[in-house]
Design a protein around this nucleic acid. Structure first.
Length: 623
DNA sequence: CATGCAATACAATGGGTGTT
DNA sequence: AACACCCATTGTATTGCATG
């Protein structure tokens, strides 16, 4: 097979036909190309190329990037050449009087300005100066700008002095320079990694604890001048100061990237593509796209950690609880065996105390074991005497379905229907440890049916709530009552209002690449979830709630039934209690309502949904 | 002041998909 | 076929700091 010259890069001669397909290359003399074409760009940097037989019409991507590099740096190079030329000509001209030049070096601006200032202000009356500077200046120096400044400084009128200094042409310039050098020093301080500036810290944990308040206090701590400058620019709007200074500082030091990562998260959440990052990373606003993605992954990897800690806490708590129960049981047994003896006075009491001692030792051992494994956190949080119950949590899962269209279908490469499972853990806001797992609230014999039937109290409650609901609807939909919208109760208070108002803590646990509609897949997933997330006490697995949509819940329950013949509660998958989350409840309810009760033909029949809607001119649901 | 080290940012590159 | 774009990996540049 004869190879074509056009298969090679014109400049580096790389063969661009990989496995028979041309890739990562571009043609040189194509008329349809967007300007500027590559020959034009080459011409601009001083290389003329023409279509010639024996020379390729293509270049590879690498050479195009090289050209971009040349375009970027050539102007700089030219500037260097110019500078060298200038220096040479200067040197040649002044070679004759170079001695003079050496003898009188150019003094810096500051001393000169100072000299002039001092000279005019103080030289005429040096003898008298110490006795009465004021008088000397007033007498000797006429009404110049400098004298006013000195006068105000003498009188300690700083504001006026500063004002005059800023009106003085030369002095202003120097003051500005000084301020700039102060600013420069502050920037150096803030850019020093040893000063623990918040923007330096971009590890996942640090990013999670990133806040504007901390940033603001760090800015004030490390660079008060810079902070005040930005505060003036931003008219003291605190988040704006933080954002502006963070972006500005990253322009100086790209490693001050914590705020950039914060913006990355915002942008990625909003669906920004690589192009956005390409653009914004050049402005030092975000990091490069690769890093943004990398950090997301890093963050994702940390999500599970705190959940596993919670699991360990729950496990320790379970162990302690069962120990305590056993302890209480033992005591009761002893009481039953010897009812005539008073506990605590006789040898049984001693025995009990040793038993307690042993148990507490065990507890200690147990907590020590855990402590070595888990950085002492558990032992700190769970003292042996009064264990505080840790938060429980539940797992929420949902299926993620989408369709991947193959552009060119083949037997190996066809359209793919993807079914995955996403799951998160949510910390329970209301503790339920006071409720027993194995006993009902009330003995069946003590149970009275009237406790379940709606009685007078229930009706009163319902009436009260309907009043609230009614007031809410009236003020929302009836124009006359709209002004009362702000005074009606919007959320009916209940026992746990305060807890439920808090934001919930989620632990994203990532995707599972299994299909929930396949029995084998789902059973694997459930075993995995139980193994990973259910706390295990001495009596086998404890129970956690697992929520999904209605189909998931039904599927999961079926799997649990299928495993019902296991020996232990772990094998029987009893560590999970399935529930459904009615995400779509309202929507489904409306759909059913609409399907059952609405008919376009019933517009004339009074009392039907369609007629009522027509009468009320409620047309928005037609659209 | 040169050198090496570590952390980070980012460009280059290869493999791929989707559109024109 | 050509192009634009995406993604992951690899290699390189930059920076601050410590050291000799």
């Amino acid at each position: 097979m004869a190879s074509n010259i056009n298969d090679f890069c014109r400049f580096c001669m790389k063969n661009m036909r990989i496995s028979g397909v041309l890739g990562h290359c571009t043609t040189l003399f194509d008329k349809n190309k967007k300007p500027p074409s590559i020959p034009d760009r080459l011409m601009h940097v001083g290389l003329e190329i023409k279509r010639r037989p024996g020379k390729s019409n293509r270049v590879c991507r690498g050479c195009v990037s090289t050209l971009s590099g040349v375009e970027k740096y050539l102007p700089l190079y030219w500037r260097w050449v110019e500078n060298e030329k200038d220096d040479e000509s200067c040197a040649r001209e002044s070679s004759t009087n170079s001695e003079k030049r050496n003898r009188e070096p150019t003094p810096s601006k500051t001393p000169r300005a100072l000299k002039r200032f001092c000279h005019k202000a103080t030289s005429p009356g040096i003898n008298n100066v110490r006795r009465s500077i004021n008088a000397a200046i007033n007498k000797q120096v006429c009404d110049t700008e400098e004298s006013k400044i000195v006068e105000h400084i003498n009188n300690r009128k700083w504001v006026a002095a500063a004002k005059f200094i800023m009106n003085h042409k030369d002095l202003t310039q120097e003051v500005k320079n000084t301020i700039l050098s102060l600013l420069e020093n502050e920037c150096k301080t803030i850019c020093n990694p040893n000063n623990n500036f918040i923007l330096w810290r971009s590890s996942p944990e640090d990013l999670k604890s990133f806040s504007f308040d901390k940033l603001e206090s760090d800015l004030q701590r490390l660079s008060p001048l810079l902070f005040s400058i930005f505060a003036t620019i931003c008219q003291n709007s605190s988040p704006v100061i933080c954002a502006a200074s963070a972006i500005a500082l990253r322009g100086r030091q790209p490693r001050l990237s914590a705020f950039a990562h914060y913006l990355n998260c915002v942008l990625l959440y909003g669906g920004a593509k690589k192009a956005v990052f390409d653009r914004l990373s050049k402005l030092a606003i975000t990091t490069a796209h690769t890093n943004a993605i990398g950090k997301q992954k890093e963050l994702a990897n940390t999500c599970g950690a705190s959940l596993f800690l919670l699991k360990r806490l729950n496990e320790s708590f379970l162990t302690l609880e069962t120990e305590r129960h056993r302890n209480v049981g033992l005591r009761e047994d002893n009481k039953a065996m010897s009812p005539s003896h008073k506990p605590g006075l006789i040898p049984t009491g001693v025995f009990l105390s040793t038993e307690e001692l042993q148990l507490s030792e065990e507890e200690l051992e147990c907590s020590e074991e855990k402590a070595t494994e888990e950085e002492n956190i558990i032992s700190v949080l769970l003292p042996e005497s009064q264990p505080t119950p840790p938060n429980t949590y539940s797992i929420i899962m949902d299926n993620l379905d989408f369709f991947m269209h193959a552009h060119h279908q083949s037997t190996l490469h066809s359209n793919r229907s993807i079914h995955w499972i996403h799951h998160i853990a949510v910390k329970d806001r209301i503790p339920t440890h006071h409720l027993a797992n194995d006993l009902p609230l009330l003995d069946l014999q003590q149970y009275n049916l009237t406790m379940s039937l709606p009685g007078h109290e229930t009706q009163t409650n319902m009436r009260r709530e309907f009043i609230v609901l009614g007031s809410r609807i009236l003020t929302q939909y009836v124009a006359v009552f709209k002004s009362f919208r702000n005074v009606v109760v919007h959320h009916i208070p209940h026992q746990y209002s305060e807890e439920m108002a808090q934001p919930s803590t989620d632990y994203p646990l990532g995707l599972i690449f299994k299909n929930e509609n396949k029995t084998s897949d789902l059973s694997e997933v459930l075993q995995n979830i139980q193994h990973k997330y259910t706390p295990k006490g001495p009596d086998g697995v404890s129970k956690i709630l697992v929520g999904g949509d209605r189909l998931t819940e039904a599927n999961c329950r079926n799997i649990q039934h299928a495993f019902a013949d296991g020996n232990t509660n772990e094998e029987r998958l009893e560590g999970m209690v399935f529930k459904f989350e009615d995400w779509h409840a309202i929507r489904v309810l409306f759909e059913i309502h609409y399907k059952v009760f609405f008919s376009c033909k019933s517009g004339k029949d009074h009392g039907t949904l369609c007629a009522n809607m027509t009468k009320l001119r409620y047309v928005s649901c037609y659209e």
